[in-house]
Structures are given as structure tokens and as C-alpha cells.
Design a protein around this nucleic acid. Structure first.
Lengths: 115, 115
DNA sequence: CGGATCTATCGACGGTTGTCAATCTGGGAG
DNA sequence: CTCCCAGATTGACAACCGTCGATAGATCCG
């Protein structure tokens, strides 16, 4: 199976770098990676969370509690999911954690939806 | 709060047409709509299913059973989820249902990940 | 009509997920 | 050192999700 997919897929998608859903059938590995990222976006609270971080540039978790109206462990859970999907990154400074979006990861997902 | 967000958001996103996660904080409605679509993409089997449909242009469900190695009700379930998210559309012809992708919906999601 | 085929629906089962109260950790502030 | 605060972790619970066997509906063929 590797022979069949490699030639076709590489020619159209450029290999494993940035697979596209539309260009050629995904193998299990690519599908699993992309699915994890899309699943992270598949929750309204996380989407708004990401949106708030993007809008502010840098946000500490404490600033997210009020606009999202969720308990602190819930916010912590969601930031963890987004971070594990590579969509945000957190830098600890003193007592606070400063969250920022990872534009490259978003670009990867955008590319996956394009041909 | 409606005053604050309406002016800002409309100016940067063009209203409810094609909201962007990065441009301005999403309201609950936009977040819920986008989250449903991204959640539909958040499963490896559905991603590969979408990929197969896109690659073939038009596919009947029976051609999806073998490459995905899933039972027929499972395939039917996944096509339903993708269709409800607006990502694919099915046209019944005789005994078969021909599935096609909806490029406009994918474009909406791509726009949501851009600024 | 009767049998065959494609698809959708139902019911059930196990696993995952979103949520929060309670608790733990670690880094300032006094 | 002690207290306080930001954040992570744990445990628990309900809700949801992916999967499949069984079944039902629809359509074609002989």
C-alpha cells in the first residue's frame, strides 16, 4: 500500500509536511494527527478561548475565567487540550502562565482544508 | 457588552458571514456553529472519509466500506455527521447515494482560521 | 410478486469528554 | 517563615460518542 499512496500523495501534497484532505486519501497517521487538532477546535468554549488569546496576543489564565464563565479547573483543562494539539503555547512567568497562539499550527490546518 | 463587541467585530470580520477565530472574540453563536463543523472533522475515520469523497469527486457509500474497514451502520453514521455539519452533501439516485464535498463550507472553516 | 442490494435507523455497549469541588504545588508578598 | 494566590491535578458524575448486530425501508431485477 505504501507504493500506491506514496507516489500519488507525495506528488500532490508534498509528503507528510502538510497533507491536504482534498488532495489525496489520508493515511491513518495523517488523519489521526489532523483529527486531534480539529477535535481540539470542536468545542465552543475552546474556540472562544482561542479567540480570546488571539485577540489579546498574550493572556494569563486568570483573565479567561470571567469571559468564559467557567470554573478554573475547566479552563485549565481546555488550555491543556489546545496546547497538546499544538494550537497554543504557554510560558510560565512567575505565578502566571502567558498563553499565545501558534500561527504555524493554524496554517497547517488551513492547508489541510485547501487543495 | 453588545455595543462593545458589535462595532469591533463587524469592522474586522464582516459580520456573521465568515467570522474569524483570530480577528475578534467569538460570540456563543459563532463558536457553536464553527465548533460543530470542527468536531465533525475531529475524527480520523471521518477525515479519511471526507478525503476519499474529495479524491473521487463522487462516491456511493458502498465504496467507502472497504477502504475504511468499518461496518455499514458506522459509515452511515459518519456521513450523516459530515452532512449535518454541511461538509458533504448526498444525492440519492436509485439505490445509491452519491456524496460530494461542499467546497464553500470548507472555505468558511479556512477563513475562520485566518485573520 | 419475490429476492437481492444499498442505505438508514434502532438498541446496546464500552470508552471518552466536559464540568466542577476539593486538593496539591510552587512562586511571590509581607 | 507564613500567608496568599495562580495554576495544575485528582476524583467523580453525567452526557456524549464511536461502534456494531439486528432490523426496516427503498429500489432495482428477473
Amino acid at each position: 500500500m505504501s507504493v500506491k499512496t506514496s507516489t500519488k500523495a507525495r506528488a500532490r501534497t508534498g509528503g507528510d509536511c502538510c497533507p491536504s484532505v482534498l488532495a489525496a486519501p489520508l493515511d491513518e497517521r495523517q488523519a489521526a494527527d489532523l483529527a486531534q487538532a480539529f477535535a481540539a477546535l470542536g468545542d465552543p468554549v475552546r474556540l472562544r478561548l482561542l479567540s480570546l488569546i488571539a485577540d489579546a496576543g498574550e493572556v494569563c489564565s486568570c483573565d479567561l475565567l470571567e469571559p468564559l464563565a467557567k470554573a478554573q479547573p475547566t479552563i485549565s483543562h481546555h488550555t491543556k487540550v489546545l496546547a497538546q494539539a499544538g494550537l497554543i503555547t504557554g510560558e510560565k512567568q512567575g505565578r502566571w502562565v502567558w498563553w499565545r497562539v501558534v500561527p504555524e499550527r493554524l496554517a497547517t490546518l488551513r492547508a489541510a482544508l485547501a487543495d
